[in-house]
């Protein structure tokens, strides 16, 4: 594969250029970890101080939507991993189908999330006037729920944009030249997935036996 790589500015060595994108993305993932670290600190604080009332609020989260979404996103991570390997190995058809599959799974995650939001809105689970629990730690749980899931959904959307771009490059026929972009995209998608895996128990499994 190394022979297929075209050196571009500012690189002088193929070996360096090949690791550049993954290196950059890894550094950015460090940023992302600290970004989500901030809101997880808020969660830890609110749960520690909120006690029973916080858990009471958490019990209202729609566990089925959450669980299905977890499965959907985990599967998309698998397809993404296959797509990335296939790109590297030059299996164009597999890469195309797997990228397409990831895109569809990512979209269905957002759609399911949309249905879940609709249910939450119907049940008055938005803190503020008319909120089911009034002021208190339960409202803090739902503040976390909305902020974290919306932030995560924005990340999913950005990830879908990256995958769509990879698909477009594939259609153009030079995905092999962009193998490192595929690798970077996959890294980002896995991060989005891992963030969800952390959020899932915090949002849906609290206070349930």
């Amino acid at each position: 594969m190394a022979e297929d790589l075209v050196l571009h500015e500012p690189f002088e060595e193929a070996a360096r250029q090949r690791i550049a994108v993954p290196f950059g993305v890894w550094s950015f993932l460090a940023t992302e970890c600290l970004f989500f670290g901030g809101i997880l600190l808020f969660y830890a604080y609110a749960r520690w101080h909120g006690g029973e009332a916080f858990t009471q609020g958490a019990k209202e989260a729609a566990v089925w939507y959450g669980t299905i979404n977890t499965a959907v996103l985990m599967t998309s991570s698998l397809t993404m991993a296959i797509a990335e390997r296939a790109t590297k190995g030059g299996f164009r058809v597999v890469a195309r189908w797997m990228l397409g599959g990831t895109l569809m799974l990512g979209l269905s995650f957002l759609v399911i999330k949309g249905f879940e939001y609709r249910k939450d809105v119907h049940e008055h689970l938005i803190p503020g006037p008319g909120f089911k629990f009034g002021q208190g730690p339960a409202a803090q749980f739902w503040a976390f729920y909305w902020t974290a899931t919306v932030t995560h959904a924005i990340h999913v959307t950005i990830g879908l944009g990256i995958i769509a771009r990879l698909l477009w490059i594939e259609r153009r026929g030079d995905l092999l030249l962009h193998a490192t972009s595929a690798q970077g995209g996959a890294l980002y998608w896995h991060l989005v997935d891992i963030v969800w895996v952390v959020l899932y128990p915090l949002l849906y499994l609290v206070g349930r036996p």
Partner: peptide, 19 residues
Amino acid sequence: EQPQKDIVAGYTPVMPSYQ
């Protein structure tokens, strides 16, 4: 202000908030 928060063991959280 937040009677639901830390309840003494053995009591139920029935007090309304005086906030």
